[in-house]
C-alpha cells in the first residue's frame, strides 16, 4: 500500500488515492498501486545482491564494534545510537577512544574531520547521480559511507530499474546491516559458532574487486594509478594514522596537473569514464 508522500511516486499516485475511497475504478487503482510498489520491488531485487558482501562485512565489523564498546563498559545503547547517527566505521572506533580519554572538543572535532575528509571526494563524484532525486537525496547523502558510495558510484543500474530507489535500497540496507551488527554485538556478544578470524577481509576484497572492475572498464588508467601510487607513497611517508589527508592532497594535485592529459586520453577513446 502506498501512502501519499513527496517525491517521484507522489504526482502519479495521489489522485488515485483520493479516488480509492470512492467507488470509481477500484481495479485501475489497484493496478496503479501495484506499479508503484513494483518499482520499489524491482529496485530492491537489483540492489540487494550488490550488498551481500557488505551484509557479511558490516554484520561482522559492527558486532566487533558493539562487543568492543561493551567490554569498555558502555551501556549497550551506545553502539546502536552511534552506529545509527555517525554511521562511519573508522570514526566510531576512534570515538570509543575519545570517550575514554579526557574531554577535548576541539581536538575531537579536528580528528573527526580528518578521518572523514574523504567523504568530500565522494560528494564531488556523486553530485550528478544523487542530485534531483527529491526527498531521497538528503537520505542518500546521510547514508553515504565508503561502501554505499563505492557500490552506487560503479553500479550500472539497468534501464528498467528506478535509479533513485536502487541507490536508496543499497544505502538503507547497508545502514541496517551496520546498525544490526553493532546492536547484536552490544546485546548478545559473540554469537557466530565458527572461527571468524580474517572475515573482515571481505571489505578489502570488495573494494579490490570494485577497483579492478573500474580498471577493466575505464579508457585510461591515470586516475587509478594516481590513487594507488599516491596513497602507497603517502602511507610509507606519513604512516597508517595520518596518510589520508596527504593522499587526498596528492590526488587532487596530480589530477589538476594532469587534467589536459587525462581529458585528452578520455576524449580520444570515446566517452568520459
Amino acid at each position: 500500500m502506498i501512502k501519499p508522500r513527496c517525491g517521484r511516486d507522489f504526482p502519479i499516485i495521489y489522485p488515485f488515492l483520493i479516488l480509492k475511497d470512492t467507488p470509481f475504478f477500484p481495479a485501475l487503482i489497484d493496478e496503479v498501486i501495484d506499479v508503484a510498489s513494483s518499482i520499489r520491488r524491482t529496485a530492491f531485487r537489483a540492489a540487494f545482491p550488490k550488498t551481500i558482501p557488505i551484509l557479511t562485512g558490516f554484520l561482522f565489523l559492527g558486532m566487533a564494534y558493539g562487543i568492543l564498546m561493551r567490554t569498555k563498559g558502555f551501556h549497550p545503547l551506545y553502539p546502536t545510537v552511534m552506529a545509527m547517527t555517525i554511521f562511519g566505521g573508522s570514526l566510531e572506533y576512534v570515538a570509543v577512544e575519545m570517550l575514554l580519554s579526557s574531554f577535548a572538543p576541539v581536538a575531537t572535532l579536528l580528528m573527526a574531520l580528518m578521518i572523514q575528509a574523504r567523504h568530500l571526494f565522494y560528494g564531488i563524484a556523486m553530485l550528478d547521480k544523487y542530485r534531483g532525486l527529491g526527498w531521497k537525496t538528503p537520505l542518500l547523502i546521510f547514508w553515504m559511507c565508503d561502501e554505499s558510495f563505492s557500490i552506487n558510484c560503479t553500479a550500472e543500474v539497468p534501464d528498467e530499474v528506478d535509479r533513485g530507489w536502487f541507490y536508496l535500497w543499497v544505502s538503507l540496507l547497508n545502514w541496517c546491516y551496520w546498525v544490526a551488527g553493532a546492536t547484536i554485538g552490544a546485546q548478545v556478544g559473540a554469537v557466530l559458532p565458527f572461527d571468524t578470524e580474517g572475515l573482515d577481509f571481505v571489505m578489502t576484497a570488495m573494494l579490490a574487486v570494485i577497483f579492478l572492475d573500474a580498471w577493466l572498464k575505464e579508457k585510461q588508467h591515470w586516475s587509478s594509478v594516481i590513487g594507488l601510487c599516491g596513497s602507497l607513497a603517502c602511507l610509507l611517508i606519513f604512516g597508517a594514522d595520518g596518510f589520508m589527508l596527504p593522499t587526498m592532497a596528492c590526488i587532487l594535485l596530480a589530477l589538476t596537473v594532469l587534467r589536459g592529459l587525462i581529458e585528452r586520453a578520455e576524449g580520444k577513446a570515446g566517452d568520459a569514464v
Binding site: 601510487c229 602511507l235 590526488i251
Partner: peptide
C-alpha cells in the same frame, strides 16, 4: 572533471586504506 576522474583514484585509495 573531478567528478569523472576521482572515482578510480578513490577506489585505489580505499584499497590501500583497507590494507594500511
Amino acid at each position: 572533471y573531478l567528478g569523472r576522474a576521482l572515482p578510480s583514484a578513490i577506489f585505489g585509495m580505499l584499497v590501500v586504506y583497507c590494507l594500511r
